[in-house]
Design a binder for these strands. Structure first.
Lengths: 134, 134
DNA sequence: GTTTGTGCAAATATTTTGCACTTGA
DNA sequence: TCAAGTGCAAAATATTTGCACAAAC
C-alpha cells in the first residue's frame, strides 16, 4: 500500500534546460533554447523542451509571456513576489518591476465591474538602453 | 496630374465586418466573425476577414488583444483615449478601463531602466458577473 | 482602365499529441 | 520493476501569402 512516490524526475534534459535558464537573464523561446542546447552538444528534442518548460511554468519556476509576435518566451523568475516585466523586444533582456500599484488598480476595476477570477497580463515591451542606442 | 486618390475602398465585405463589429460589444476572433457573416448569408472569405481586421487595427478603428489561448480578438474601440480592457474569458464581453495610472507607472519604470519605444500590453481577463454566477 | 480588394489553396509558424522506446528511482 | 520522461513523426491551430480574378473609383 505504498504511495507510488509520484514526482518530477531528475533527467539529463531537465537539468540542461534549467542550467541554461540559470545562466541567462533574457526571455527565450522554446526554439532558441532547443537550438542552444543542441549547439552545446546536448541530445534533446524540441518536444521535451516544450514539455519541460510547461512543467516549469506550472510549478512557477519560470515566467512565461507572449511576445508581440505571438511566441511564448520563458525566463527564470528572480523574485517570488508577483511582478511584471519590462522586456526588450530586440534582445529579450528584461527587468522585473514590482506590481502592487497595478494589482490594486486591477482589483478595484474588476470589483467595480463585477468581474471575478482575474488573471492579469501586463508586460511592457520596449528597447533596452543598449538596443535603443544602436 | 490628379493624385490617384489612394485610400481604402468601400467594399461589401468591409461594410459587413464593420456592421458586425458595431452591433456587438464583445471581443471576437476572426474565425467567429467569419462564421457569423457566413451564417448571415454574406459571401466572404476568411482571408478577407483577417486582412480587413488587420487594416482596421492599423487604422486604430478596432482594438486587438491576444487571448490567453493565443487567439487574436477584435472589438471596436469605444473611446479614443488610450485604455485597457477587462475581458470575460468565457463570453468575451469587455469593459474599457482608463489607463492613466498604469501609463504613468509604466513610463516611470521604463525611464528608470533606460527603456525606450514602449508598447504596453495590459489586459485583465476574468469572469464577468453573468458568467461568474453560472 | 488602373489600382485595390477578394478568395481559394498552399505555405508558415508555433505548439501539441500519439505512440513506442528509454530511463530514473 | 514500472511509472515517468523522451523524441520522432504527424496533427492541430492560427495566421499569412501567392496568384488569378473581380470590383471600386
Amino acid at each position: 500500500m505504498n504511495a507510488p512516490a509520484s514526482g518530477v524526475r531528475a533527467t539529463r534534459q531537465r537539468a540542461a534546460i534549467l542550467a541554461l535558464l540559470d545562466r541567462t537573464d533574457r526571455f527565450r523561446s522554446a526554439q532558441s533554447i532547443f537550438d542552444e542546447l543542441r549547439a552545446d552538444g546536448h541530445g534533446i528534442g524540441l518536444t521535451t523542451v516544450y514539455r519541460t518548460l510547461q512543467a516549469l511554468v506550472a510549478g512557477e519556476v519560470v515566467d512565461v509571456l507572449r511576445s508581440p509576435a505571438g511566441e511564448s518566451l520563458y525566463r527564470r523568475c528572480e523574485t517570488e513576489e508577483q511582478h511584471h516585466h519590462l522586456v526588450c523586444r530586440r534582445c529579450g533582456i528584461a527587468a522585473e518591476i514590482p506590481g502592487p500599484v497595478v494589482e490594486a488598480w486591477a482589483r478595484e476595476a474588476a470589483a467595480h465591474h463585477g468581474f471575478s477570477e482575474l488573471s492579469r497580463t501586463l508586460e511592457v515591451f520596449g528597447l533596452c538602453r543598449l538596443c535603443g542606442t544602436r
